[in-house]
């Protein structure tokens, strides 16, 4: 089982000191493109967190129960990708059914969720670093929280980094990447938190 210390530690490490977007640079393009629509960002970050949490648990179980007993660990990355696709399809089904978000967001957002490298990164790191499915799931939850922090704050920063006051050669992508870099510098202070 999972102690409360382990849980807090995993949440802190995955969301702050090992933040997937800012420290490990996974899913940077997703967080930049998803944050363009400010109104949709809370629901998008909620869905992404849910996908990360569930797929982390599912992938860990699949690897330990099926792949290791069949000696097929070399198929790990491929099977993780398939399982992530399955988890995302499941979310898609429920979102369509209960009409959680508008069609426009739905059409832009779901293709990006399939190719979010952070989701695969969590699964791959879990297979080497954690020892139980509870740890794997809380690591996924922490990563989701970290992703949401970046997504929401970056979406609210958009107003300050778009507009005519930005020098013309830096408008759009360059200034967004510079901002991501400065945010990443801010997060590098959390290094070594134990």
């Amino acid at each position: 089982m999972l102690t409360i210390e382990e849980f807090t530690y995993l949440i802190f490490v995955a969301s702050l000191s090992n933040n997937y977007v800012l420290v490990q640079t996974l899913g940077v393009s997703d967080s930049m493109r998803l944050s363009e629509d400010r109104k949709a960002v809370p629901i998008i970050s909620l869905i992404t967190t849910s996908v990360m949490t569930i797929s982390a648990g599912v992938n860990y179980c699949f690897e330990k129960i099926i792949l290791e007993s069949l000696h097929l660990v070399y198929l790990r990355t491929l099977s993780f990708m398939l399982l992530i696709t399955a988890v995302v399809w499941l979310h898609k089904f429920f979102i369509k059914k209960y009409n959680v978000c508008s069609d426009k967001i739905f059409n832009i957002f779901f293709p990006l969720l399939f190719i979010n490298s952070a989701v695969l990164g969590i699964a791959l790191q879990n297979s080497e670093n954690v020892t139980s499915v509870f740890q794997a799931t809380s690591h996924g939850l922490g990563a989701g929280i970290g992703f949401s922090i970046v997504l929401i704050s970056f979406a609210n920063l958009q107003q300050k980094i778009t507009g005519p006051h930005i020098p013309i050669h830096l408008q759009g992508g360059p200034i967004a990447l510079i901002t991501m870099g400065l945010m990443s510098m801010a997060f590098s202070g959390f290094r070594g938190i134990m």
Partner: peptide
Amino acid sequence: LAFAVLTANFIAPT
């Protein structure tokens, strides 16, 4: 302090 200020700076619009 520098890291704390930078972190709070990008959270300030939120």
